[in-house]
Design a protein around this nucleic acid. Structure first.
Length: 291
DNA sequence: GGTAGACCTGGACGC
DNA sequence: GCGTCCAGGTCTACC
């Protein structure tokens, strides 16, 4: 079936897709030729479906299997969250107006970052990005899905596994088969806490807690440090912190310090004036250094 | 509060 | 083919 969802203007599907590496992490897939974003999702009734998402006038067009009314409503809610269709970035765009390095943000509809339907999935993926190379992140994520994800009918594709599915696995399997190494304990503990209801990550998505408090909650999760917390806050829609990894240090080093080594404090200082838009300013800055 | 070292995988490199 | 080195954040122990 085909249906469409409207987006708050300005909106560009390409800008959302290009916002970070999530588009290359299964069950996301991006076909630049069409162009279309694909995602294999498992609805709350267990039904596994795949969305084909393309840009359409005023928002996005969805192509998926035939859905009942409740399923369609659930899919619409999930897609609205994933693409940030109802998010408003006008204040950021106004603030960025006088900065040449951010002059493009309104024209290119920057601000949204691609996110998974559940915060659980984004926390897992963020933990898989820490202390490793991108190729290994993709492999660990792929292994996790292949081992524990539910299969899309008539296809080899699989949805991202539920917390319960990961919680039921032995840590040894995570370490030896999924190849997540020392992250096994963090992933297993997270899956256990989420599936048992002890940790309600979904509530954090729409919480009115101050960002610093929200950050403290995220830092309580084993495997989530300052970088991962900032990344997750950005995904939730809070941009008060910068996800400072080695790449961020390199970008700032070349932008302002002629390639000399810099500290996280120097990165913070450079973007301090952006306040609640700090993360967005950093994320969408038109960097000189391309690597 | 700051710092050093361990954690673990996989790719690059030298032999 | 094997061994060694290195990159990548978080956590913990220690000062």
């Amino acid at each position: 079936m085909r249906f469409s969802l409207s987006a708050r203007k300005p909106f560009s599907l390409r800008s959302v897709v290009d916002s970070h590496g999530w588009r290359d992490l299964a069950p996301f897939r991006y076909d630049a030729e069409r162009p279309a974003l694909f995602y294999v999702d498992q609805l709350s009734n267990g039904h596994v479906i795949e969305y084909q998402i393309t840009e359409s006038p005023g928002g996005v067009a969805l192509e998926t299997a035939r859905l009942g009314n409740a399923e369609k409503a659930e899919a619409s809610d999930r897609l609205t969250w994933m693409l940030g269709l109802d998010m408003d970035f006008s204040a950021f765009h106004r603030a960025a107006r006088g900065e040449p390095k951010l002059a493009h943000v309104r024209r290119t509809a920057r601000g949204r970052v691609l996110r998974s339907p559940t915060l659980y999935e984004d926390v897992v993926k963020t933990i898989l990005t820490t202390n490793t190379l991108w190729a290994a992140t993709k492999r660990m994520n792929w292994n996790l899905i292949q081992r524990f994800g539910s299969r899309l009918p008539g296809s080899e594709k699989r949805a991202f596994p539920s917390a319960a599915a990961v919680a039921s696995a032995a840590r040894r399997i995570l370490r030896e088969k999924i190849r997540v190494g020392y992250r096994a304990e963090a992933l297993h503990q997270l899956a256990r806490r989420v599936s048992s209801g002890k940790l309600d990550l979904e509530a954090l998505k729409h919480s009115d807690m101050p960002t610093t408090q929200l950050r403290d909650e995220l830092l309580k999760i084993r495997g989530v440090g300052p970088y991962a917390a900032a990344n997750l806050l950005q995904i939730i829609g809070r941009a008060d912190f910068i996800p400072i990894d080695t790449w961020a240090l390199k970008l700032v080093s070349h932008e302002w310090y002629r390639g000399r080594a810099v500290t996280p404090a120097q990165v913070e200082k450079r973007f301090a004036r952006w306040g609640e838009f700090k993360g967005l300013a950093f994320w969408f800055w038109n960097w000189d250094y391309q690597g």
